[in-house]
Write a protein that binds this DNA or RNA. Sequence first.
DNA 1: CCTGACTGTCACATCAGTGTCACATTCATC
DNA 2: GATGAATGTGACACTGATGTGACAGTCAGG
Lengths: 246, 246
Amino acid sequence: MNFVNIEQRLMTIRVLIADDEQNQLELLSFNLTQNGYSVTTASDGQEALDRAEELLPDIIILDWMMPRMSGIDVCRHLRAMPETKDIPIIMLSARGEEGDRTLGLDVGADDYMTKPFSPRELVARVRAVLRRSRPSLMSDVLEFEDLKLFPASKTVERDGEAIALGPKEFKILSLLLERPGQVYSRNQLLDHVWGHGVYVEDRTVDVHLSRLRKALNTRKGRGADRPDLIRTVRGSGYALMANQPQ
Amino acid sequence: MNFVNIEQRLMTIRVLIADDEQNQLELLSFNLTQNGYSVTTASDGQEALDRAEELLPDIIILDWMMPRMSGIDVCRHLRAMPETKDIPIIMLSARGEEGDRTLGLDVGADDYMTKPFSPRELVARVRAVLRRSRPSLMSDVLEFEDLKLFPASKTVERDGEAIALGPKEFKILSLLLERPGQVYSRNQLLDHVWGHGVYVEDRTVDVHLSRLRKALNTRKGRGADRPDLIRTVRGSGYALMANQPQ
DNA sequence: CCTGACTGTCACATCAGTGTCACATTCATC
DNA sequence: GATGAATGTGACACTGATGTGACAGTCAGG
């Protein structure tokens, strides 16, 4: 009975945080969770990279020194992959590793914090970075082409006409709208929309996408249907995209 | 139960006030209550944020320095969430923290007061801010489509015809009318209408909504019933909406 | 005590949204 | 084009959420 706020929050912001120091990890994770973020943790560089690719979080927090792969390297890898290259990153480093600040920002980190810092400080930075790099996350309407989605009223309209969507379809569309162009695999959709650990067939995603497409494209008046904004990437997944390459 | 005074119309305005100084908190809370506001208090930043998300008050008063999370941070968080981003905020700070005024207004506060000030002064500011940012609240009537609700007389009419509502139904409708379109979860309704901490079944909300709908839609004369203005958002809650899709 | 207005809970009827199948299409590749 | 795999989609049974009438409890005012 107390999940209301998180559940009610229209868009859950996903944070991936990686640190090999277990206490630190738990402390920060707890604080982020308390602030309404959906947190995933990793305790070494390799794991961080794996989780990042899989979850496509909205922001990633990396410790500088980690086993198996340093934060710097993780950062480089993330920046090299098209799906993750735009995810904002905050680097953390222990005092004494300073001077690396330049290097950190150099490999593409969006912010850099030196330990020790208070969890509050981190939460504030996260918010600041998100506002800077993903303003759409903070907005109360998601738009793409002639499509508008209003999280507060759980309403969608296309070309001015209201569209009725089921909860799942609504969530899928919200997700796609957060990063137009980004291809989401069936597994990523299952994770984000159905929740991690829920078990349903992959094909279920297809069916929901079919329903979503039908709802979005069918025009009530007898006019011709609207162009499809959802692109199927064979072997990969789905993405929002205008001007389908036929 | 029939006080008639100018403050009557303010009965439904909810104020959240957060200050870690207990005396101050009680003093201000008392004065606001005396002026007809419905007051909720919080004694630290985190609590303020939680209460704010849960209650969606009409105005929030934040002390600058508080344990667990500063007023500034609370402000940032509130501004970042779609549901709370439009709630007006008044920041309070002790003398000596001045100069932060800019920062306060920067993170989105609507007004800024330096301690010490008289409770009367605060009440005046609250009134001013509300008039500026939520004129509908200061009006004598809440309207939506052909529906009118008069807070002062606790009466409702639809399409000119008076509608009799029970207290609970009236409160529910008041809430919905304050933010047409906004989806309220059963839990939010329970908090607002029944009060925080009161335990009743979720389903009770459904029953009251059913009664409310019946009261609003049934036309006394034999004419056809009126269209339903309350939208059920399956899995989420209820909201006011004209032109129900479908 | 009664009465009438309001409430909170149940129980039962419905219904919308889901997950799967099965079969039709499309696509990449040879 | 032939072929196998991937995707599109109508149909359908099922389940959990919601709508609502009925009923008993509470409370203020006679």
